[in-house]
Design a protein around this nucleic acid. Structure first.
Lengths: 222, 222, 222, 222
DNA sequence: GATGAATGAGAGTTCATTCAT
DNA sequence: AATGAATGAACTCTCATTCAT
């Protein structure tokens, strides 16, 4: 009543400025990452964002929508990480695969990035469309890139005649699982950096699919 | 599905008082598997068990305790399998590992059993003691058994000098991840049975750690 | 079905044996005295009585009725204590009053007796008819007896022209209040026996109503 | 009675946000006074305050806390009276005692205030800390003030060598007991105002402890 | 007579959401 | 834009009471 121009009596808002919503999502990620969806209260998000609870509703119509917007936004970020990674590497599939694997380690150093897969897996039942979106934009793309590389390796005679999708998953899952494990069982985290794990996993994987024996594997003493 | 057969609509039960707590857990598993922990109401469990809400409290002091009892019960069953499997197999580590891997496939055929890891993962932050319990009784023991087998293989010169814990996880994680994947992204489940996946994963793993080249891997066409 | 004679098919009971109900009331007094009415569960009473909860309902139709029966029974006991006490003492009103006062001390040594006034005061609003009954059978009678004694004292020229009812209350209330105080604030109970208190209160009272100065009062050092 | 005027049925209020907690306590006192603690539902308080049940929780974290806050608030008021009253009266202990006694009459004219001791008594066992608080802030301080006055009277040769604490209780208990009596046995309330009772009790008390005979007591005809 | 088993009807408490300002 | 205040609709848990055996 004091801010609105009395000439234009538009009681409902439609404009949503850009900075604020992102700040809210930023804050929401922090609390969702720690508490999960159900246990996070709108008050928590508001407090983390330095806003009042009601203010959140200026930008997002519901708690579900905050969550969805958050995941969609972060998926975008995640996707950016991997998007170009696998391109133009078919000349040297092994180097390409190694590059992708190492990128994992780097990306998931950021806990706010690492939280995303766990959140999605945990809440997939409640937000099947989100899970679907994640699958389509992140999983399938990453898998696709890996599959292409693996197929290229097979075609080049570097790899055995494995099923590429399966092999791709065999490479990715120990890495994803490790970041899930670290979040779910923080008490059992040895201080080992992800990079070391990645190298070991990749080496094991490479030996698994190599057409000919490779260099001897050097295990990691945790 | 097994507690209340939707085909036969007989709302009244022949009571088996001694088995009541187990029936409640049975029902609880059904509901938790579909809704997760937080979204499951005591009324849901009660209804699934053919009881009143208050009756649940005759057997379990709280919702948390229902969940914990459920995990303990299911885990106890699984654990017996693995414990027995891992012992007495050190003579033939490869056969031992293969046996354990195959047992996974069998155990997690039951979708309600498969739901447990997902629920644990989703609720680990809210129930750290439950997660701790799960880690201690399931993860550590399974890992321990695998590590022993792998170490035996290394000692016998069958496997390369890999880090056993890491190798164990590299074997297990594709399998665990697959059951998570199937639940989180049901739309992307190809009908492939777990057994086939297990064989492929195990073969890839074996080639990865084998000291000498093995028989050529035959990939699975999904 | 196994105990009841199949010839006489009387599904409802009317007979209530004598011993059991009293045992129940005995137990009920214990728990009501400690927890008050609302906080006492039927289970508590049952456990204290060594019976099942359902068995209580064989003897009393409701929790309220247990309470009422208990109070009525104990009022009878209490009443018996004081009933004849004040009779035939009009020859020597001072001795009569002293006798009554000392009886208080003796009676309320028993905590199960002492609990009654507190219970009744505490629950008077919920059980107005019980309170009424207590007033009629205990308070009025006791007061009546005291009033008669005091009136006799006045008539004999021993006491001043006080209002007898008021004086009676002035004598009784410090005593009753003390037993309430001891129950409500057990942490502040100095070990002083009731008898000592009674003597002091009585002495103070006597000096208060005496027509002529009496012997010097000897205070009690607690 | 004072919060929701039954005569003017205006369901909506002019909101005074700052005063809300006090309004809630005001309403709570009304309801607690009638129903006691256990039998009062949060809904009752809310309705009496013209609020929703959930709104109460904006100001008080639990029902217990509403009760405690209520007692503290009311006691604070009372206590101020007594504290001031007892000071600066040692020159004339008799006038001081009379003043304190008369303040009782005034304070407990308000039936809602009079309800507090009864509630405390009834709930003392369930809320030992509340009882403790009440004892410390009300009973001990009132007693302390009286004890000092009585001791001053003894020192001045006005009173006999009575035990001051005991004498203080002998003065107070008929008054406290009377307000309990009036609530527990409303059917037996003669219309006599508290002031008259106070004068009579005080006169009796004074004669009881006086070192020399005082003016003849004039009893009250109820 | 007695009980184990069960329940309906609440109770206190929480929280996403709304609205007047 | 933003918020303090408020609430309705749950939810977990409790307990007096019932009933088949």
């Amino acid at each position: 009543m004091n801010v609105i121009d009395p000439n234009t009596s538009q009681p409902k808002w439609t404009r949503k400025p850009q900075a604020r919503p992102d700040e809210v999502l930023e804050a929401a990620l922090d609390v969702f990452a720690v508490n999960g969806f159900a246990a996070t209260r709108m008050d928590d998000i508001a407090k983390a964002a330095g806003l009042s609870k009601a203010a959140i509703y200026l930008y997002f119509p519901s708690k579900d929508d905050v969550f969805k917007a958050l995941v969609e936004q972060r998926i975008g970020v995640l996707q950016g990480h991997f998007d170009a990674a696998a391109k133009d590497q078919k000349r040297d599939p092994i180097a390409g695969l190694r590059h992708v694997a190492r990128m994992w380690a780097t990306s998931f150093q950021d806990l706010r990035v690492a939280a995303l897969p766990r959140i999605i897996l945990a809440e997939a039942l409640r937000f099947p469309d989100l899970a679907e979106f994640y699958h389509r934009t992140v999983i399938e793309r990453t898998q696709g890139a890996l599959v292409e590389l693996i197929q290229a390796g097979i075609d080049a005679g570097l790899f055995r005649q494995v099923e590429p999708l399966l092999a791709a998953r065999a490479l990715v899952s120990p890495l994803v699982f490790e970041i899930l494990r670290r979040q779910a069982f923080p008490a059992h985290n040895i201080g080992q950096p992800m990079e070391v794990l990645v190298e070991a996993v990749f080496d094991l994987f490479l030996n698994g699919i190599a057409a000919v024996p490779l260099q001897p594997f050097v295990g990691v003493k945790p």
